[in-house]
Design a protein around this nucleic acid. Structure first.
Lengths: 255, 255
DNA sequence: TGACAGGCTTGATTTAGGTCATTGTTAAAA
DNA sequence: TTTTAACAATGACCTAAATCAAGCCTGTCA
């Protein structure tokens, strides 16, 4: 299947269409627009062509759950665009979003043969899909890839520990400030400007499930921060933060 | 330094004494009582002797913090006995215990050159210490070790996600039941008996900081479970669980 | 054009768990 | 043996956030 055929599914006018297609050997990966991100950045051209053999590009429409918690984990994913929410649920429906992940993120690190979490596209998501079996073969050949995966896991672990600190002890105000500040660092890296502009895709309900709060509390808290002049809200999901450092201080519980 | 010299520090009559000693080449690791656990199990005799060159055995007295959050991460650890609490803190002293770890656990997976968490011995702890530099060298030579570390990280990540679900949504009762059930599975594995007996080393304050509750709530909740006949408390930190499956149902929020 | 639905905000009220205070228990030090 | 201190349990009270209940946008479908 050709590369051009792949792009059809990306058209905004066909949001429901899912394209599943093989890649053109080494071509597809080596010209990949996100090659610098994610696990692929650990490989050179030759190695990448091997990886490409195992990869399939997929487009997922907004709202579609593409990993079911507890289902058989026969596939791994690497996100190339869009935002995905990862979550765990209790039998009665309570849901904890354990993370929002986007470009470059690798999904499916678990040792078990079952996924430990569910995954759902928030906006339109594109990703590379690998069969578990074939990826494991490629990993065996390239220790650098293995190292990369370990680092990925270690970084996620650090994020998870931060989130435990948030969920275990922070106030609603601190949680919302932490979330917003996290969005800023995700977007700007270490070079955070004054008047940082954010436009994230997740709803209040998503934020609530991520922060261990209710929608009402998230809404009230955001309104509170706005009244204090700490943030300004725009249309859609746009928020401007005049002084990110001020927000960080609140996020870390220092006031 | 001889192996026999090492044992001096383990005497209960000298709890404050810390022993830092080199290992006898391949001897020390190959006869290690916990070789089947932890990262060492990924290596054969020859590889292990290489690892041993980089290892130092250490004994830590109860209550001693041996990793400071944010300090320079120049050492890795592998626990050979005892229980360690890992935690993160907010500037005002609020503390979240992110995990209790014991025999076989590898400490220091972070990518950063700073520790992302603090670590403190709960009871007397023995561990193998590696310089970061030397361990990285050994890892480079043995891909199997790299794989082992990735799996270790992946498993921790799953545990962290479970804990996020707990902290984000569970009631006090469900949290305490989850903790107790977790202690049971840690101790018995998959083969859980009726009338499981537990005696864990952590205080109510530790449990509270782990579960995102206060000591009072932990105490009240344990008393509540006892009144209901779901657990029986003994002297010290002993608890008997007549029906672990009953506890599991509560832990997972199904009643 | 209206009406329906999904998402957001805000207000009134409730409650689970936190805070503060007291007492009991155990064990090590003196 | 008393003294001290750390840990644990329990009661009385308080509060942050949940719950319950409207109302308000905005986009889309008929």
């Amino acid at each position: 299947m050709s590369v051009s055929a792949l792009t059809a599914g990306n058209s905004p006018s066909h949001p429901k269409r899912i394209v599943i297609a093989g890649m053109d050997g080494c071509q597809a990966c080596s010209v990949c627009e996100v090659r610098a991100h994610g696990i692929c950045s650990a490989l050179n051209d030759e190695e990448l062509s091997q990886l490409a053999q195992a990869a399939v590009r997929v487009t997922i429409p907004p709202g579609r759950q593409f990993i079911e918690e507890g289902s058989f984990a026969d596939e791994f994913f690497n996100i190339t665009s869009g935002t995905v929410k990862l979550f765990k649920s209790l039998p009665d429906g309570r849901r904890q979003i354990t993370g929002f992940v986007s470009i470059g993120h690798f999904l499916g690190l678990a040792v078990s043969d079952r996924y430990a979490f569910g995954a759902e596209a928030i906006d339109q998501v594109r990703l590379c899909r690998f069969s578990r079996e074939r990826l494991e073969t490629v990993i065996d050949e390239f220790p650098r890839l293995e190292r990369r995966l370990r680092n990925e896991a270690a970084n996620e672990l650090v994020a998870a520990q931060d989130q435990m600190l948030l969920l275990g002890g922070k106030t609603a105000r601190e949680r919302v400030a932490s979330f917003l500040y996290g969005q800023i660092t995700d977007l700007y890296g270490d070079d955070i400007p004054q008047n940082a502009k954010l436009h994230f895709p997740m709803t209040r309900a998503d934020i609530a499930d991520f922060l261990g709060l209710t929608v009402e509390t998230v809404s009230r808290t955001i309104s509170g921060l706005r009244r204090e002049g700490l943030i300004a809200t725009g249309a859609g999901h746009e928020i401007t933060v005049p002084s990110p450092s001020r927000l960080q201080i609140i996020a870390s519980g220092e006031e």
